[in-house]
């Protein structure tokens, strides 16, 4: 039987797009070997503490990172091109979007406007669950996280569930695909209903598989962005009971809530981790 995994939980400071993506790519590169001491940055004591923790067990390691972006930024799916922004039906009438910085993700899917949202990444090495054999996505990981978040939203009083429907892309139709991830709909996306009965996608994720592991990125939409107010976030839907309603910087800490839901979902899927190392990367200079 496989040993219980250990988990590194990273709470990060807002960063620019290239740095955010580089950290996730480095995590994907190193998680299988457990060589994550670089996360300690220039804090030698922290590096030693992390190195010591990493060395006491051979159990597989999972890294989970929660982060935001220091300025509104597009992250494009791996096969997307920025030129599509001016061509796709959902973005071509918004030329001001072209002025925003953008970065390419290693994961698939559509573009995300990282503004009033929370981003997470999960990096899982080969050998955990059935990842070593499959090709393509790990639906079990998508479903676990998304189901956990949808369940939590229902507990808050929102009407939310997995989409279980699709405007699925195909090779034949990709020219007419929406540019934005939150305009696309796949069966595992989390959708929530507003006061008027319209449904909105509030959580979407995408994955990348490599020989040594799998990266899952996801975006949890809290509020609409001023740069693209057409996509509503949770706080825009109405019907959220107290203590929510504060949005970013408000009374309700969506960051803590989201972390709890994601970590609980991973524990439900892979078993409660043998040990958890929490690292706050805020004000820490990480050398990637």
């Amino acid at each position: 039987m496989m040993a219980k995994p250990r988990m590194v939980v990273l709470e990060d400071t807002p960063r620019l797009g290239p740095e955010n993506m580089a950290i996730d790519e480095r995590l994907l590169q190193d998680v299988a070997t457990g060589d994550l001491a670089w996360l300690g940055g220039q804090d030698h004591a922290q590096c030693d503490r992390l190195r010591s923790w990493l060395s006491v067990s051979d159990s597989p390691l999972i890294a989970v990172r929660f982060y935001t972006w220091s300025e509104p930024t597009f992250s494009l799916g791996h096969f997307q091109r920025i030129e599509q922004l001016g061509q796709a039906e959902d973005t071509r009438e918004h030329p001001s979007l072209g002025a925003l910085p953008w970065v390419q993700r290693k994961t698939g899917g559509g573009a995300i406007l990282h503004d009033r949202e929370l981003t997470y990444s999960i990096v899982v090495p080969i050998g955990i669950e059935s990842l070593s054999f499959s090709k393509g996505h790990s639906e079990i990981l998508y479903r676990a996280v998304h189901h956990g978040v949808a369940e939590g939203l229902r507990a808050l009083g929102l009407d939310a569930k997995l989409s279980e429907s699709c405007n699925c892309l195909s090779n034949a139709s990709k020219a007419s695909d929406p540019f934005l991830c939150f305009h696309r709909r796949t069966p595992v996306d989390v959708i929530a209903w507003d006061e008027h009965g319209a449904d909105h996608k509030v959580l979407g994720s995408a994955q990348r598989r490599v020989k040594t592991g799998l990266l899952q990125h996801g975006s949890f939409l809290i509020e609409k962005s001023r740069a693209y107010p057409g996509l509503l976030g949770l706080e825009d839907l109405g019907g959220l009971p107290a203590p929510s309603g504060g949005g970013f910087g408000g009374k309700f800490d969506w960051g803590d809530w989201f972390q709890d839901r994601v970590l609980l979902a991973i524990a439900g899927l892979l078993g409660r981790p043998e040990d958890v190392f929490r690292l706050n990367l805020r004000e820490r200079s990480v050398r990637i």
């Binding site: 994961t107 996505h137 995408a206 990348r208």
Partner: peptide, 13 residues
């Protein structure tokens, strides 16, 4: 090469 399906990018060896 690489292939994308259902939002997952996978390598081909």
């Amino acid at each position: 090469g690489e292939v994308e399906s259902v939002k997952a990018v996978s390598p081909m060896y």
